[in-house]
């Protein structure tokens, strides 16, 4: 599609959407959000680019192959699930740790975050794979 408005809008919106996706991903544990909707919004930003330009340029913008994204995401999710098993707890139990950031407060890090990152990557990869394949055919 060759529309100047869409071109400009996608250039402006793409980083904003991605930023929003990352925000949703990390805030997802305690407030609405999480890996799934973050992945969808991330995919939406690339989909917008695809509609404004074309599939090859969107692929170039994404850099990684969607298949690799899905594979990595699955490994992330499974890795987070297996960590607890190696620690002697039930499969997929959430493990939490954390550290103090001087002056800024306490940061807790846990396996659910890794799991959500995996979900994010899988959803991003799958959605983009569907969109790319359908618009290429």
């Amino acid at each position: 599609m060759n529309s100047l408005i869409l071109h400009t809008a996608s250039r402006l919106l793409h980083p904003l959407l991605l930023l929003y996706a990352v925000y949703l991903l990390f805030s997802g544990h305690n407030v609405p959000g999480g890996g799934f909707c973050a992945g969808l919004i991330g995919a939406a930003s690339f989909a917008l680019h695809t509609f404004a330009h074309d599939v090859p340029s969107a692929r170039k913008l994404l850099r990684a192959d969607p298949h690799t994204l899905i594979g990595t995401g699955l490994l992330f999710a499974m890795g987070s699930a297996l960590l607890s098993a190696f620690r002697g707890q039930a499969f997929m139990t959430g493990l939490w740790g954390g550290f103090d950031l001087s002056g800024l407060g306490h940061v807790s890090v846990g396996t659910p975050v890794i799991f959500d990152t995996g979900v994010f990557l899988v959803v991003l990869g799958v959605t983009l794979l569907i969109i790319f394949t359908l618009s290429e055919s």
Partner: peptide, 11 residues
């Protein structure tokens, strides 16, 4: 699942 994920990495 792991086999599938690793196969995806070597698409």
């Amino acid at each position: 699942l792991l086999s599938g994920a690793i196969s995806l990495l070597f698409w």
